[in-house]
Amino acid sequence: MMDAIIQVSAALIGTLAFGLIFNIRGKKLLVGALGGMLAWALFLLLGLWIPSEVARYFLVSVAIAGYAEIFARVLKTPTTTFVMVSLISLIPGSGLYYTVASALNGDLPQFLEKALHTLALAAALSLGIVVVSALVKHATAYRNKRKEQ
């Protein structure tokens, strides 16, 4: 439990710092950082029922993309603002490291396993974002069409 609290707080601080790197200001910075915290809390929570990391990545990505769509409308900023920072803690940076490290150690089976796992995580993450943005886009197009009629 203690570990989870430390991880979630680290995600909050890390995301906040990333927001500064991307030159995000004011309320948007706060919302982005809270999204980052939420993302990892959700990831850990889902771990109670879903053991697969890839599946959890996808679900968290969908949830945070939804969060981004909502706050983008509230704060009148592109959705990308929050999608980019709030999902930072899910970017498989450690996967990349362990892939390279096992290549350096000459451990081919582990290299393949890590590389595939890293790619799967990145794919799940991107897919979640795409699913939400496609849904929102079609929903908006449908609404505009009905308004015209």
């Binding site: 999608v83 940076g93 490290a101 990145a122 991107s126 795409v130």
Partner: peptide
């Protein structure tokens, strides 16, 4: 140094590029 290097990778990694690329592809 595992976690130190990973921390450094996280601040360098082009995560934005990847997600944006997939979005562009589907648009």
């Amino acid at each position: 140094i595992d976690t130190i290097i990973i921390g450094n990778i996280m601040s360098l990694i082009p995560g934005v590029g990847l997600t944006q690329s997939i979005r562009d592809l589907f648009i």
